[in-house]
Design a protein around this nucleic acid. Structure first.
Lengths: 336, 336
DNA sequence: AAATTGCGCTAAAAGGTTTTATTTACTAAT
DNA sequence: ATTAGTAAATAAAACCTTTTAGCGCAATTT
């Protein structure tokens, strides 16, 4: 276990001051008018001995940790897992690291996590906010710490935000079902005030309205068990004799599919929000509204980095288009 | 933006020294014989003003960051995503945080990541090592920093390790196929020296041997595209007229299923290693060898925490049993 | 000749803790 | 009356950087 080499060791070895070394290492040689000869000498020596600055000391002094906090709903959900992977590799290139936690939509946990990350002085946040987190986010803003929300936002709070066009996605999906000839089209959502859910619901309703169709809506408790969800979905679909269903999340769609298997009823035409490996493989394969995951991740990072560099003032809201991926589960209805 | 309150502010306000406050805050009041009266006075005041220590300063002084590095293959793979979620919530209770990165099985990236985390002075590592990472892990050990490997290990390096009983899992799966009457049972694996692959392969071979059956093995390049994997799997299954296949990972199984869909050949009886949402939903549902994810996560954390507390000396290797979840894809063969 | 400017570099403070070594004020024992 | 011992608290060093303010000197300006 060899001792870590310090900036003072370098200074001593070269017979110069610590300050000079620090300036050179922080690319301030020019600005501070350090001679090129000395600059080179220091850089060479640093390389030779493989000096690595102590990030903790650096952070303590500068107040910047180069760590970003990622607060998401659930890292084991492929939608979030994929975003996390993309975010992680993006920021990595910029010298930032990610420290993350899943909230499972629990406000108290979310609050605690954010406080914790704040105490650890992360430089910025990317958050999928749960219901009721508005105050906490506001506090972060007031503390002047950059926050970018994604997937959902707070209508009454000016924040940076990146998300998909949920209204359009749901609208297009519903329209597609209408065009295919379906007459009893249901919509499955959650008991939640989150904006993405509201927008999807609005998109569905608008399309149904345009097509002069009666709407059927079923909400599921956010903390419902898989069993409970399956039960209520079975009833919803069967009792209303639906011939098509739009599911507002991928896991609700999966619960629906499980239900149809468990209770042996025929799943009507269906569309799911958010793609998933399973949807491509099923027989029939499932039509989905797919969010532009890559673009979402890229924009999240871009906005956050610009904020960190103080390059933007006004809040930015990015709404990215969804893509309707038409598969077998929504083929044209054969009129009976 | 109110100024952060410091330990020195507390000392000043109460007319005592910084040292005393620090002792009390670190539960050393007894040991350092601080009077109970004073202890209470300090604790009350701290609570009242809501003092939170600066973790950076603490870390700088103690050399401990209370951050653990998690290096996994791919956070977007549900198997790893689930483990990550469990690990995260476990360590969270103990006051530790996780900083993670995916390697995508790239040694160079893994090495760089570990170096980075090391520079940031994480207290310990949990790593799914890619091929060729042996040296790096050895270096960490020599630097006296705790490392626990999982999913795979290095036969020639004494390390803490937690993983599933891959041999037994593959053995049981293969035996099950034999008992169901299948005669041409193939095994799909990766070109990789990783131990978990070797063990699964050995389990398959041993069972085939016991049952006096001819073995069929196909390896896929680790960096093969989905298309390439699908092509080679199609050829493997069709040209050998296999009536059953054991896939050594969930994503290989998924590639196989995609291939059967794309090229319209009937998928023979099959078993996948590692469960996945998709396997329960397919028609027929897929029999799997399921790893005890929860136990793996718990043991990883337990061992790492014990190491961090210096409570264990000898390396621990935990091998946990897999469970064969029999579903519809391996029903008894009807002899033609 | 005195005052100013520019150059190349540096001493020392600051950032907020923990911990070692020491002090002070007592009480008890010799 | 001196010594020894103990309880309760503390001063100052240590952790390793970045950054502010400024020094000594030579060249230029007034």
């Amino acid at each position: 276990m060899k001792k870590r080499i310090l900036i003072s060791d370098i200074a001593k070895a070269l017979g110069i001051s610590v300050t000079t070394v620090s300036f050179i290492l922080n690319d301030k040689a020019k600005e501070k008018r350090i001679s090129e000869a000395l600059t080179k000498r220091v850089l060479d020596y640093v390389k030779k001995v493989g000096y690595k600055p102590n990030e903790l000391a650096k952070s303590l002094r500068t107040g910047k940790t180069k760590i970003l906090g990622l607060i998401i709903e659930d890292i084991s959900n492929p939608f979030f897992g994929n975003i996390a992977r993309l975010i992680e590799s993006k920021v990595y290139e910029q010298g930032y690291r990610i420290i993350y936690c899943s909230t499972n939509n629990d406000v108290d946990k979310a609050r605690e996590l954010i406080q914790m990350f704040y105490d650890r002085q992360v430089d910025g946040f990317i958050i999928t906010p749960s219901d009721g987190l508005e105050d906490t986010v506001k506090q972060l803003q007031q503390s002047n710490i950059p926050v970018v929300l994604f997937d959902r936002y707070f209508p009454n709070l000016e924040t940076d935000y990146v998300g998909a066009d949920n209204f359009q996605g749901a609208f297009d999906a519903t329209n597609h079902l209408c065009q295919q000839g379906y007459k009893r089209i249901g919509f499955v959502s959650l008991y939640s005030d989150q904006t993405q859910m509201k927008e999807r619901s609005d998109g569905y309703l608008k399309a149904m309205d345009n097509n002069k169709q009666q709407s059927f809506i079923q909400k599921v408790q956010m903390d419902a068990s898989d069993e409970e969800a399956m039960d209520s979905l079975k009833d919803f679909i069967c009792e209303n004799r639906l011939d098509a269903v739009l599911f507002s999340t991928n896991y609700l769609a999966i619960s629906g599919l499980k239900a149809s298997k468990k209770y042996s009823f025929a799943m009507p035409a269906m569309i799911a929000f958010d793609d998933h490996t399973v949807f491509k493989l099923l027989e029939p394969s499932i039509t989905v509204v797919s969010q532009p995951i890559k673009e979402i991740a890229e924009n999240l990072i871009n906005i956050l980095l610009l904020r960190l560099q103080g390059k933007i003032k006004a809040t930015r809201k990015m709404v990215l288009p969804c893509e309707l991926k038409i598969r077998e589960s929504t083929k044209a209805k054969v009129n009976v």
